[in-house]
Amino acid sequence: MNKNPKLFIAVCTLPAVILTIIFMIIPMFNAIYLSFTDSTALSVGTNSKFVFLDNYKYMFRDKYFLQALANTLKLLLVVPPITIFFSLLSASILTQSRLREKAFYRTVYFFPSIISLTLVGIIWSFVFNPTKGILNHLLELVGLENLKHAWLGESKTALACIGVALVWQAAGYYMVMHIAGIDGISRDVYEAAEIDGATAAQKLMRITMPMLKNTIGITYVLSLSGTINLSFTLSNVMTAGGPNGASSVLLQYMYQQGMNNANFGYAMAIAMFTLFMAVIISAISRKLTMGNE
């Protein structure tokens, strides 16, 4: 074995490579092919017609697709920065403060990311419920009745509600990553800053954030892809994409066309577009966060 470590490494990685090829690479190429056909969910390419770019051309005339695209972009613009901000803030507080319940808070904040996403959707549906929801009741309690809404049923608020649930669900997960990053920063740096009279905010802005730049870059990209993926479930559970498509997102529309409407080819075209968009956005954000390297 010592004689040929390369062979040993190759043999060890082979199962993973084979699995990746079978379950990731081949389906992806299959999806690319299907996106050029009029396949239904049944034929899956066997007796479907090759329609070349028709699906892609139709996409940009399809008002529901454009609406879903706009909604997804809005979420991508707002959700990852807020998620990363809250996760950094809580990571910073939990590592820097002398709270005795640190471990407890860490568990509580992390908890939302390990429960089923469908459950997260249901929990937030209860929060936003127009008659029984805690949010409207709290507003009533503090005398702000005029701010009460049918949160999930109004086009101005539905998407924002999904955004809130997304942030709540993901912030704890990235917090743990950031805590791990902060633990890697030498205590001496913080102590030196404290001696120089730095405040907690200054330590966060001047020490933690610059030194965690790499980690933040990665968590930001993860958050982008998480937002694209997870918004599908939350939108399905909380609003069913409504009202009138105001909270529909790309993957949800893809699912609807593929499964409910039996337009598998078109759904794959939407999936390919989403993949392409996600890769571009991730590349741009990586470039921006790693700009100085």
């Binding site: 127009p130 008659t131 109004e154």
Partner: peptide
């Protein structure tokens, strides 16, 4: 009031 934000079981309960 609030109908537009309810799901089927919620509105049926109400």
């Amino acid at each position: 009031e609030g109908t537009v934000g309810m799901n089927h079981t919620e509105s049926q309960s109400e």
